[in-house]
Amino acid sequence: MRLRSLLFVPGDSERKFAKARTTGADALILDLEDSVAPPQKPRAREHVATLLRDQASRAWSFFVRVNALDSGLTLDDLAAVVQPGLDGLLIPKANGAEDIARFGHYLDALEATAGMAAGSVKLAVVTTETPRAMFNLGSYAPAHPRLVMLTWGAEDLAAAIGATDNRESDGAWTEPYRFVRTQCLFAASAAEVTPIDTIHADFRDAEGLERECRRSRRDGFLGRMAIHPDQVAIINRCYTPSDAEIAHARRIVEAFAADPGAATIGLDGKMIDIPHLKAACKVLASI
């Protein structure tokens, strides 16, 4: 499952879904949570269930963001959307691995009822939306068998802790949110799942999005959430290794393959060791 770009789509909007499916996003996240007003949630749930029943071929993964466990809406969401065609769930406001285990138990039963193969529905988690969650980031390792991705969010956390803003005047994250971002990256790495960076809220700021994506990939994130179709192409470009990067990674792998007993090799006048080999393998695995 390739996850560079994951585009949110309100679950109650046929128009936005029709546009989103042509953007080239690796995954669409049909949203039943924050982008749907409470009175519209039953309608959104049924709309998403109808979309899932369309078995036409698609080039993207179908995710659904359900409502949080403390909302009283989660089981109704799951009952509607766990059916053939669903690739994954995005879990909001998770407090740690115990929540993921709970979703796993629900899915075990619902997949069986729907006639789906056990483990079909994967889990992606927003890990940083509650203060409690920040003390449980290490709990995701070792990863639950369904877990494929960890990401982070700033807005719900800011509201929870009473922050008046989470950005500096120049647009940079304030210190608490730089810490949150870093901890999510380490948690995903420890769990050996894909680390995905958070949204860039100003969807008109293409230059700022590209700058943030390049920094993000430099730091180790492998993809990004999107809130507007225009963001997808930028995200895909920034998180896709260049031809030069791929060629260099292949040369490293080939050099070590030619000398299996070596811990270091010389390449282009530089010493290359095992961490370089691991990084090269990750580059090749992402294409």
Score class of each variant (00 low, 15 high):
Lys282Val: 08
Trp152Met: 04
Asp259Leu: 11
Ala263Tyr: 08
Cys184Met: 12
Gln55Leu: 07
Leu150Trp: 05
Arg65Ser: 03
Ala262Arg: 11
Thr174Cys: 11
Leu137Ile: 06
Gln183Thr: 08
Asp273Val: 01
Asp54Gln: 13
Ser120Trp: 04
Ser5Cys: 11
Phe203Pro: 02
Asp243Trp: 04
Lys93His: 09
Pro176Ser: 10
Ala201Asp: 03
Gly88Cys: 01
His276Cys: 06
Ala172Gly: 13
Asn67Arg: 14
Tyr177Phe: 15
Ala18Cys: 04
His144Asn: 09
Thr151Leu: 11
Arg65Cys: 03
Arg217Ile: 05
His248Trp: 13
Glu14Gly: 01
Gly261Ala: 14
Asp26Asn: 09
Leu107Ser: 06
Arg181Asn: 08
Gly153Tyr: 01
Arg102Trp: 15
Asp70Ala: 13
Cys238Phe: 01
Gln83Arg: 14
Phe8Cys: 13
Gly96Ile: 13
Arg181Cys: 02
Val148Ile: 15
Pro229Gly: 06
Met116Gln: 09
Val125Ala: 04
Ala79Asn: 13
Ile235Gln: 00
Val232Thr: 02
Leu284Ile: 04
Leu28Arg: 10
Ala247Ser: 15
Ser120Asp: 05
Thr151Ser: 14
Gly208Asp: 08
Pro145His: 10
Ala124Lys: 00
Leu78Pro: 05
Lys16Phe: 07
Gly96Gln: 12
Ala188Val: 01
Pro176Thr: 12
Ala56Asp: 13
Arg58Thr: 11
Leu209Asn: 07
Ala109Ile: 03
Leu107Asp: 10
Phe179Tyr: 15
Val82Gly: 00
Ser189His: 14
Glu129Arg: 10
Asp99Pro: 00
Glu111Val: 09
Lys41Val: 14
Glu212Met: 05
Leu90Arg: 06
Leu78Phe: 06
Leu51Asn: 04
Pro84Ala: 03
Gln55Asp: 09
Ala109Arg: 13
Ser61His: 15
Ser242Cys: 11
Ala56Val: 03
Pro38Gln: 03
Pro229Glu: 08
Gly11Met: 01
Arg43Gln: 14
Ile234Lys: 01
Ala263Trp: 05
Thr128Met: 10
Ala285Val: 01
Asp34Phe: 04
Gly96Arg: 12
Ala262Asp: 05
Phe63Leu: 15
